[in-house]
Write a protein that binds this DNA or RNA. Structure first.
Lengths: 205, 205
DNA sequence: TCCTCAGGTTAGCGCTCGTTAACCGATTTC
DNA sequence: GAAATCGGTTAACGAGCGCTAACCTGAGGA
């Protein structure tokens, strides 16, 4: 074989195209022949790299969830030890920024992430769900440090809602969203505002 | 045949179960036999009520989009002529309230609405997209009355983002969300806060 | 030079799915 | 009372799917 880099490139190439196709037409709506064609090989050639179509989806979803969680943890750790005092607000800002980067740069993955979870084998789905849950809990902790008046259940609901807000970019998608930076700034401000209003409402009640 | 009411009840029963199943396992993931079984008839019996599986999805999606748009227009008209001056803020509140009601009461439909649009025939998809666009524009107008400092493109992005926020309820779903009223209040506050922060960010820039 | 083997190919199998065909009982209509 | 029709049934067809089998090629290593 060629170098290890080439081999993993081919695998990653397959995953990337599969993600795009799954996001566009749904897991069941895409055939293995199409995925193969998208990377220049045909149909069953994919089975030299993956044990089956399900495995591609599983690897994609586990990968996404893992990346989000790892990135989130890294940001919490970094922002926590940052010299400029920062405080919990800065940590939350960093989490939001990381999620926005992901949502804007890996649209198909974000789409897959909350559309096709149910197509997974039980064990894989459990794994993904667990990673998702840990990611949510990471956010909940940070949000409650910033807004102590928020109890845990509404904080969790608020985090889910903000995920929905941040993940909306694939929907408005294609051509006519403002430039990337402006969109990121807008979404960031909206997320912070949404959390603040949630806390305010909780305090008032 | 029995009364007209019975006939339309059967049709609606089919649509309701189809919506649930499509939302749970995706359009391609559900067979006509399962839909039939869910209403007590079997497989091909459905073809006495619909010309095909696609037609069920189309009717569901067109129906949802139409309902949202009609309800939104009604609310704008009502809140506009309301005796207690109200103002644009009240109109926006009414829109948000209506959307939240829909998201909380018709979860499967909301799920379908932004997952399975691409499975439609071109003509149906165009129709749904047009209804969705009009609904968005309705919101954009109202939002810009409340927050004049928001230009049109960011306002449109903000509306999409708030839809993502409000439609997040199916995700956190099943068991452990607070009671309905509390969730509605929380989401409402977050939506208003998100818009306000979007406007604030736009004014600052 | 020969062997191994990674990474492809095409043919085809078996299954599932949407849909149609043919038939049937009950209820309404003339 | 006959006829039509509504709403259902079962059988079966044809297409498309994921996947396997069998084969092939070209590059490295002994």
């Amino acid at each position: 074989m060629a170098t290890r880099t080439d081999a993993s490139t081919r695998r990653e190439q397959i995953l990337k195209e599969a993600a795009r196709l799954f996001a566009e037409r749904g897991f069941h709506g895409v055939g293995v022949d199409e995925i193969g064609a998208a990377v220049g090989i045909s149909g069953p050639g994919l089975y030299r790299h993956f044990p089956g179509k399900d495995a591609m989806l599983a690897e994609l979803l586990v990968g996404i969830s893992g990346q989000l969680l790892t990135g989130g943890r890294r940001r919490v750790a970094e922002a926590g030890t940052e010299s400029r005092g920062g405080g919990p607000g800065a940590v939350l800002d960093s989490l939001i920024e990381g999620h926005i980067d992901f949502a804007l740069d890996d649209r198909p993955l974000i789409t897959l992430h909350d559309r096709e979870l149910d197509r997974l084998r039980d064990s894989d789905r459990k794994m993904v769900r667990q990673l998702q849950r840990q990611y949510v809990e990471l956010w909940v902790e940070v949000v409650r440090e910033v807004h102590p008046e928020l109890a845990e259940p509404p904080a969790r609901a608020a985090v889910h809602a903000v995920f929905g807000l941040l993940n909306s970019t694939p929907h408005l998608s294609r051509p006519r969203l403002p430039n990337r930076a402006a969109t990121a700034t807008l979404l960031h401000a909206m997320a912070r505002g949404a959390f603040a209003s949630a806390a305010e409402a909780a305090a008032r009640a």
